[in-house]
Amino acid sequence: MQQIPVNLNGYKLIVVEAPAMKTRQVDGRDELVTDRRTGATLFEVSLFARQRPEPGQKAAKGEEIKVTLATDPGEGFEEDTRVELVGATVSPYSFKNDKGETVSGIAFRALGLKPLDY
């Protein structure tokens, strides 16, 4: 199953690296990554995700996640900005790398970012 909707409302999301156009290395050079269906340029943002604690509980450890964005989020998403993901999904992946090892995980994706004022 691809693009499984995910609810991150119980998490505090903070920008660690500002959004930028997504690139990949091809034959030693950077190449822009585009959406396979639409051809639109994709963007990527690094966020620190930490679950909000329940009253009386200690906050759990957080984790840095990279999120692919389907659109240019625009200005105003500098480091330490609190945000919300619009239309967040996860997709599982698994592939064999150049060493023959199986690499598996989940990839985060969203339609865009929304700044939070608190």
Rank of each mutant, 00 (worst) to 15 (best):
M1Y: 09
Q3K: 15
I4K: 12
I4T: 12
P5R: 06
P5F: 08
N7T: 06
L8Y: 07
N9L: 10
N9E: 13
I14E: 06
I14S: 04
V15I: 05
V16Y: 02
E17L: 13
A18H: 06
A18E: 08
P19L: 02
M21P: 11
K22H: 13
K22W: 13
T23M: 05
R24V: 08
R24E: 12
Q25Y: 06
D27P: 09
D27G: 12
D27W: 12
D30R: 14
E31H: 11
E31M: 13
V33Q: 06
V33L: 01
T34R: 15
T34V: 15
T34P: 10
D35E: 04
D35V: 00
D35C: 03
R36T: 09
R37H: 13
A40L: 09
T41D: 12
T41G: 10
L42V: 02
F43V: 03
E44H: 00
V45Y: 01
S46C: 14
A49V: 08
Q51W: 06
R52F: 04
P53H: 03
P53E: 03
E54K: 14
E54F: 08
E54P: 03
G56F: 07
Q57A: 10
Q57W: 02
K58W: 06
K58H: 07
A59T: 00
A59I: 00
A60T: 12
A60F: 04
K61H: 10
G62P: 07
E63A: 08
E64P: 04
K66A: 13
K66P: 07
K66E: 11
V67L: 01
T68M: 12
T68E: 15
L69P: 12
A70S: 12
T71Q: 09
G74N: 02
E75C: 06
G76I: 01
F77I: 01
E79Q: 13
T81E: 03
R82N: 12
V83T: 01
E84N: 08
L85G: 04
V86S: 05
V86D: 10
G87H: 02
A88R: 09
A88P: 11
T89Y: 05
T89K: 04
P92H: 15
S94E: 07
K96I: 06
K96D: 09
N97A: 00
K99D: 15
E101N: 14
E101G: 08
V103T: 02
V103E: 06
A107T: 11
A107H: 11
F108V: 11
R109K: 14
L111Y: 12
L111K: 15
G112W: 00
P115G: 01
P115L: 04
P115D: 00
L116H: 05
L116N: 08
D117E: 14
